[in-house]
């Protein structure tokens, strides 16, 4: 088992290298720094000097992969690839266009992101699984049908609608909580409660329906028939036997997103003015701040891979077949 985990972790390294090379290609090869400078400075009236200055400010005035002018090891290190891409492996993300350290920005913005994303995730998981269990318990009845119909309806509604509708109803019409903004500490409650609520409601449709499918698939298996033949009640069959087995497919989808919670949600944060990583990303996209977008891409994949490894670990917890072999 340990060997299995070590192998999974070692496998993560080439993946990260792949991500790094991909982002490098995307940001520096598809369009050269000259192109980017020309676009940011305005295409019509741009002088070569202005482009050079723009590149120099951002450290893009070096060769791509190999610096023949430099000495020794800096032939490889004094290049765009080394300084902009490879350096991300040590979480050195450089500076954004407004001159701030991206790493520091990430560190301070993680908190607000988590304050929204973590409760949304936990409450949501609990709500969706409960709802799905309820539908499974009443499978084939009108209640189940109505539940599924509700799910389909909810998942057909755009996520933007939940946010706009929620803000309109709760903040603007009822004046229960502020429309947007954020404060740290105890004050934060009134700012985070609406985004969390909306986040949970927005996921009900697809998640509950997915969990229901998983439960139904499990319930059709032979061991469930055995459990019933023992004389167990339907509730107990569902909660001990089915739930335990259904944990395995559920974990596959759930654990992997846990690390990504740090990244926050783009939409929610930008609508509610939460100073988290999600709104940071959106602002960077709108300002076409490539360094920040590049950093977030890399950070996102690191977190995703951490999630994959966590998933593997969680298997060993819930599935004895993985744990003991």
């Amino acid at each position: 088992m340990i060997a299995y985990l070590i192998r999974r972790i070692l496998y993560a390294l080439p993946i990260l290298i792949g991500v790094n090379l991909l982002t490098f290609a995307l940001f520096f090869v598809v369009n050269t720094p000259d192109d980017m400078a020309r676009m940011q400075l305005g295409i019509k009236r741009v002088t070569p000097e202005a482009i050079e200055k723009w590149k120099q400010q951002r450290g893009y005035d070096k060769p791509m992969l190999f610096n023949s002018a430099a000495e020794g090891a800096s032939k490889a290190t004094d290049t765009i690839f080394w300084q902009k891409s490879a350096s991300m492996f040590v979480f050195d993300f450089g500076y954004s266009d407004d001159g701030r350290s991206i790493s520091r920005e990430i560190a301070t913005r993680m908190g607000p992101s988590l304050a929204i994303a973590l409760p949304t995730f936990i409450i949501g998981l609990f709500a969706y699984v409960s709802f799905a269990l309820l539908m499974t318990l009443f499978r084939g009845t009108a209640l189940d049908m109505a539940g599924v119909a509700l799910c389909v309806l909810l998942m057909s509604i755009s996520g933007l609608f939940y946010i706009i509708g929620g803000q309109f109803l709760v903040s603007k019409l009822w004046h229960l909580v502020p429309i947007s903004g954020y404060a740290s500490g105890a004050d934060s409650f009134k700012f985070v409660v609406l985004p969390i609520l909306i986040g949970v409601i927005g996921g009900v449709g697809s998640s509950s329906r997915w969990y229901r499918t998983i439960f139904l698939e499990e319930i059709g298996k032979d061991y469930v028939r055995t459990a019933r033949a023992k004389g167990l009640s339907e509730l107990r069959v569902l909660f001990t036997h089915v739930l335990k087995n259904a944990m395995i497919p559920i974990l596959t989808g759930v654990v992997v997103v846990i690390p990504l919670l740090f990244m926050g949600s783009l939409l929610t944060e930008s609508f509610f003015g939460i100073p988290g990583l999600g709104s940071y990303t959106i602002d960077a996209i709108n300002a076409q701040d490539f360094s920040v977008v590049r950093a977030m891409v890399f950070l996102g994949s690191v977190l995703y891979i951490v999630g994959l490894i966590l998933t593997d670990i969680s298997y060993t917890v819930v599935d004895p077949r993985v744990r003991l072999q």
Partner: peptide
């Protein structure tokens, strides 16, 4: 590798780059 990049970010990055190409 492709699926490890959160899709919104990958799309954002690719679209930004496409925009540069189109604009230039």
């Amino acid at each position: 590798v492709l699926s490890s990049i959160p899709s919104v970010l990958l799309i954002a990055a690719a679209v930004l780059m496409m925009q540069v190409t189109i604009d230039t």
